[in-house]
Amino acid sequence: MARARESLIDLDATSYYHCINRCIRRSYLCGDDKYSGNNFDHRRGWLVERIKLLATIFSIDIAAYAILSNHYHLVLKVNRDEALACSDDEVIARWYQLYHGCVLIDRYLAGEVLDEACLLRISEVVSKWRARLYDISWFMRNLNEFIARKANLEDNCTGRFWEGRFKSQALLDETAVLSCMMYVDLNPIRAKMADSLQSSDFTSIQERIKQYKSFQKQQIKLNEDVTVLPQPNSLLPFGKNKDKDSIPFTLFDYLELAEFSGKLILPNKRGSIDSNRPALLKILDIESDSWINTIKHFRRQYANFAGSKTSLIKCAHAHHHSWYKGCA
């Protein structure tokens, strides 16, 4: 049975969420349409550009993304504390990048002297906008509606472009976050759209690798603290320490695990598979067989909540349910 969105997004349980949406039409969201002969690869650029713009407006960071031919994946991290710390003027400035606002706010911005009732109403409006700045539903609405309108205009048609609002999975612990990010980043390889991480176009892993390779070329010698590396400004950075404003793994460890996982998915890929488990699998005590099964079938293993057995039970009880589908 379908659940209300408010029951699926629980920021007290986790700030990480996996969001997916699929195109409903016969023609592809991106790629070649065999019926019309048109190529829609440029629409993937629309999505990436819009995602990054929204990340600068909303208090929601992009941990991972992958844009495929007829659907896309996002791993989002909600930064509620940032939104709550914003001043009223900053909230208004952010919201006005997307909407026209309202007449009363316009009068306030123009410096007009307003009475107490007007100021109270402004405070109510700003509070509503502030809450929306860390609301995944509003983030996804602004993404999907923009792409749908632009695609309809290009196709000279009207009607639905997406099959629904979006699907989401709450990532309840570090292992779930790591597994889901890897599942998203390896999507083109798993779908046989690419044979390497570097050739996986329109993915966050490709963007991170390009930044890393560029840094390597520019540096004759790395600093002693090799984890302090430039990372894409548009993506949530990796951090060695468990900083709430970064992904709690190092970039080196994640890239090592991604390369290892890619070879497991494509056994014929050039290069041997190291018999030693990557550092992250050792730290999180994950066996290689269990890991490969998870990154191949992450969506099937879990429903709206993903995590260890303990995490799933705890979250289910907090929501007054007996259990949530999933396996450790």
Rank of each mutant, 00 (worst) to 15 (best):
Ser7Gly: 04
Ala13Glu: 05
Thr14Gln: 01
Ile20Glu: 01
Arg25Pro: 06
Arg26His: 09
Arg26Leu: 07
Asp33Cys: 11
Phe40Gly: 01
Val48Met: 04
Leu54Gln: 09
Phe58Gln: 05
Ala63Ile: 02
Ser69Val: 06
Tyr72Asn: 02
Val75Phe: 00
Val91Gly: 04
Ala93Phe: 05
Arg94Ser: 07
Tyr99Trp: 10
Tyr99Asp: 13
Val103Asn: 13
Arg107Trp: 06
Gly111Tyr: 10
Glu116Gln: 15
Cys118Gly: 06
Leu120His: 12
Arg121Tyr: 10
Val125Leu: 14
Trp138Ser: 14
Phe139Gln: 00
Asn144Cys: 12
Phe146Glu: 11
Gln169Arg: 14
Met181Phe: 04
Tyr183Asn: 00
Leu186Gln: 02
Ala194Pro: 06
Asp195Ile: 07
Asp201Glu: 12
Ile205Thr: 10
Glu207Val: 07
Lys210Gly: 06
Gln216His: 12
Lys217Trp: 08
Ile220Leu: 13
Lys221His: 10
Val228Met: 11
Leu229Trp: 07
Pro230Gly: 10
Ser234Arg: 13
Leu235Tyr: 07
Leu235Gln: 12
Lys242Pro: 03
Ile247Trp: 04
Leu251Val: 12
Tyr254Asp: 08
Tyr254Glu: 08
Leu255Tyr: 08
Ala258Gln: 06
Phe260Pro: 04
Ser261Cys: 11
Ile265Trp: 02
Lys269Tyr: 07
Ala279Glu: 13
Tyr302Lys: 03
Ala306Cys: 04
Lys314Gly: 05
Cys315His: 02
Ser322Met: 10
